[in-house]
């Protein structure tokens, strides 16, 4: 199963990288850009074949290593 873990800075945590990219985008002439947040996507190929079980593994991985819940939130999706 392919499990995709998306890790994002929590709302309220300053994201200087996102802010800099937002600034650069408006300099390039993209009007109306609101907040920009930059996170990361972790794509995992798991041997597990059950979607719910794969999701649970992904959640556990996210909690224990892939995200730092002091500053980051995460979302786990399973692709067939």
């Amino acid at each position: 199963m392919r499990v995709v873990v998306t890790v994002m800075p929590k709302p309220g945590v300053l994201d200087p990288q996102g802010r800099a990219v937002g600034h650069a985008l408006s300099n390039l002439g993209f009007a109306g850009v609101g907040e920009v947040r930059i996170g990361k996507v972790v794509v995992l190929d798991l041997a597990e074949t059950d979607a719910d079980a794969a999701r649970a593994i992904g959640e556990d991985m996210a909690r224990r290593l892939l995200a730092n819940t002091v500053i980051e939130s995460y979302r786990v999706t399973v692709e067939a």
């Binding site: 945590v13 300053l14 200087p16 990288q17 800099a20 730092n68 002091v70 500053i71």
Partner: peptide, 17 residues
């Protein structure tokens, strides 16, 4: 130490990037 939870908080990228 912060990642291990032995001290509170986290260290983010420098504001200067």
């Amino acid at each position: 130490l912060t990642e291990a939870g032995l001290l509170p908080g986290a260290l983010l990228r420098n504001a200067t990037l």
